[in-house]
Design a protein around this nucleic acid. Structure first.
Lengths: 187, 187
DNA sequence: GTCTATACCGAGATAGAC
DNA sequence: GTCTATCTCGGTATAGAC
């Protein structure tokens, strides 16, 4: 039996993550989130003093999700397979990506434009992901160029999400992830 | 001697483009734009009935800028050189890109999240750019895979802008554009 | 065409009863 | 801890004098 407090709080976060992903952080109102989570507006402020605190929670939630994914990928037998799993994940989510862009990329972009403390927080999402990819290339034996290769791979994944989102076309993701899987296969 | 109307209107657009690029479209208020352009708030509504109309003008302005750039690149002697000029342009703007992301990409992302008519308008930016790149690959003699190659190149450029913006690091752009120039060199 | 004053509304945030 | 009512402010947009 979960605690009531935790329950409502996490329900708010889940709802906020979902709604802000679809419509943007600033354009999504606290009232929107509260309503969707079936919680009266005033009560939201019991869990979060300001809207920016909700933003913080959203970033942290995305970080958790990212780490969960990484743990899944880490199950694979070789670093090459781990990279393939990461790319495959992008492929599987192509419809979502075409509708709302990359959850990490679009969130970072928006928060960076705003500036302030949230921007710094969001940076962690990319450093985390880039670091993990770099680790894989190093483990493959490409320690000398691991950073370059990681940048190359993550750029392609991020970029194709931007294109797919901008044009509403998931096929672009399919096309590009297929190529990237072949590319990783060469290592 | 330019007409007063056109003068003020274009001053508003220029200012709007600059401010919204740095801080985002929705978070930039009409008052912000008016003040920066030295025009009283009320007067803005003589030129634009709604804020969304300003958004429309911003997209159109970006389209114009894009076409101007393409015309410059078209001056080059070969399609390969034209692609190199496009990549070089990204490299030269790396500091700007690290601070505010790609003007086209970030604008598209934000407007897509909002949905509505502006989202559709913004799509043109990508189709235009992707089409131009595709043309170059076709001219090189890669008509069979021109679309794939164009997606690959534009994805990398867009993606590295996202990464550079997210981490505030222009070096990523330098690293990736260098690689891309070498890559294009192979064709 | 230009500008001032202002209406209006929705957002974030607070007070305080229960 | 929970919820209702409300405050306040800043934003878009309008009215109307000049």
């Amino acid at each position: 039996m979960p605690k009531t407090k935790t329950d409502k709080r996490s329900r708010l976060i889940q709802t906020a993550v979902k709604l802000t992903y679809r419509h943007g952080f600033r354009t999504t109102s606290i009232a929107d989130i509260a309503e969707a989570a079936n919680i009266p507006v005033g009560n939201v402020y019991y869990y979060f003093k300001t809207k920016d605190e909700i933003g913080e929670a959203i970033v942290e939630q995305r970080l958790l999700e990212l780490r969960t994914l990484q743990e899944q990928w880490d199950q694979r037998g070789s670093p090459k397979e781990r990279l393939l799993a990461c790319i495959e994940n992008t492929f599987e989510n192509r419809d979502l990506l075409a509708r709302g862009g990359c959850p990490v990329g679009t969130l970072c972009s928006e928060l960076q434009k705003e500036g302030g403390p949230l921007a710094k927080k969001a940076t962690a999402l990319f450093t985390e992901l880039l670091g993990w990819i770099e680790d894989q290339f190093r483990a493959i034996g490409r320690g000398d160029t691991s950073r370059k290769l990681a940048t190359q791979l993550l750029s392609s994944l991020q970029g194709v999400s931007v294109l797919a989102h901008g044009s509403g076309n998931p096929e672009l993701v399919a096309m590009e992830t297929k190529r990237l899987k072949d590319w990783v296969g060469w290592f």
